[in-house]
Design a protein around this nucleic acid. Structure first.
Lengths: 210, 210
DNA sequence: CACCAATTCAAACGACTGTTTTAAACATAC
DNA sequence: GTATGTTTAAAACAGTCGTTTGAATTGGTG
């Protein structure tokens, strides 16, 4: 039997991703989840902490998977290339779709909206809880690109983050356009498969030319 | 003398970019702009059309500038490189900062929020009015990358769009992190100067390897 | 069975939302 | 001057929001 708490989380994540945090009311969520309005405040305390709980469920999953991929990467004997590091993101993102319906799209939506958030309380929360995974990922990137300064790497990382968020959060609209313009359907997997070599090439360039 | 209409537009764009559309009430805007609440509906009809007007003022400016840059590019005699095409974005984005306070950041914020929007009425509006500029830009890109299929180019374009929006819309937060982590201040101009070669390298790669 | 805690429920709270209304003030033209 | 159309003003409208309340209901324990 699925609990009230889970019913709320399941509907909330859908609606938050589709409409945004502010545009989604607790009444919409509880109506769709077929639970009482007051149960949100009972189980989660407030709307703010509900948002955080939705976000946390995804982050726990994907950071777990990424950590696992990085374990594998650490075993590699040949030199670690940029593409190898970025590849560690591939399966974890794809796994989100198995985790939840349209998981990758929903998660990137949440991630993007979290960054756009005013007070940034989600970002602070994420930095507290998941910084070790993030730092390890950056470490691998540095190894694969010893010529690239940390500050330059910082910016490149966020350029990439923007590409992931934007193209995957909006993948439905983009897929529709792509289909009507090129008669060619593209899955989320294929988007990621285009994105990773694209980004690998970007990371591999040398602005100074050596 | 600055008109009521302009006072509203000026405050609205700031608040929309800082807090989002839904989180910004007409009462906040009119209080900050020191005009009457009803004047928004009088001058703009509704909140929705106010959002559109704020967006339009930026789009008119930047598409104008980009068109001008592309005129120059069309005169070039040597073969047009990817980097040349992307360079046409550089000055127009920088000019936004002269146009309005923190114009680039505000505009990218608006652009990002418009894409995240539910009904997407802004996106449809933009496609109607500015598609010719967009199409011309894509045309130049195709010329500079004849090996790249249109559908592949479509996705690369949106990867790039995501990077621009994400890094410039959130530039203040990112700049703060960069300064505290690397004791190194980075201006918007410098972000763009990092972004364009980064993207040029990404666009120049050949996934098929020929 | 009774007991207690955990959960659910309907209803209401005060605050805030976009929009409309009606009247007053203003500018410009005749 | 009066008349005309534009702009501002204060107030009220109907509706939604997140949250709280207090009673009803449930589930498990002695």
């Amino acid at each position: 039997m699925i609990s009230t708490k889970e019913k709320i989380l399941n509907e909330a994540e859908k609606l938050f991703a589709e409409q945004g945090f502010a545009e989604t009311s607790l009444r919409m969520i509880t109506a769709k989840a077929d639970v009482n309005l007051a149960s949100v405040n009972y189980h989660f305390g407030s709307k703010k902490t509900l948002i955080q709980a939705v976000f946390e469920r995804f982050m726990d999953r994907i950071t777990n998977d990424i950590s696992h991929e990085m374990e594998q990467l650490a075993l590699k004997e040949e030199p670690i290339e940029v593409a190898d590091v970025l590849q560690t993101l591939k399966q974890p993102i794809k796994n989100l779709d198995k985790f939840r319906p349209d998981g990758a799209g929903v998660f990137m939506n949440l991630l993007g909206r979290s960054y756009a958030e005013t007070q940034g309380h989600i970002r602070r929360f994420a930095m507290d809880k998941y910084s070790h995974v993030f730092n390890r990922f950056v470490g691998f990137l540095q190894i694969s690109s010893p010529h690239c300064e940390p500050s330059e790497m910082f910016w490149r990382l966020h350029f990439m983050l923007g590409s992931f968020i934007f193209s995957l959060a909006g993948h439905k609209a983009l897929q529709e356009i792509a289909e009507s313009d090129f008669q060619q359907s593209v899955s989320i997997d294929q988007i990621i498969d285009k994105l990773i070599p694209f980004m690998s090439a970007a990371f591999s360039h040398n602005e100074a030319g050596f």
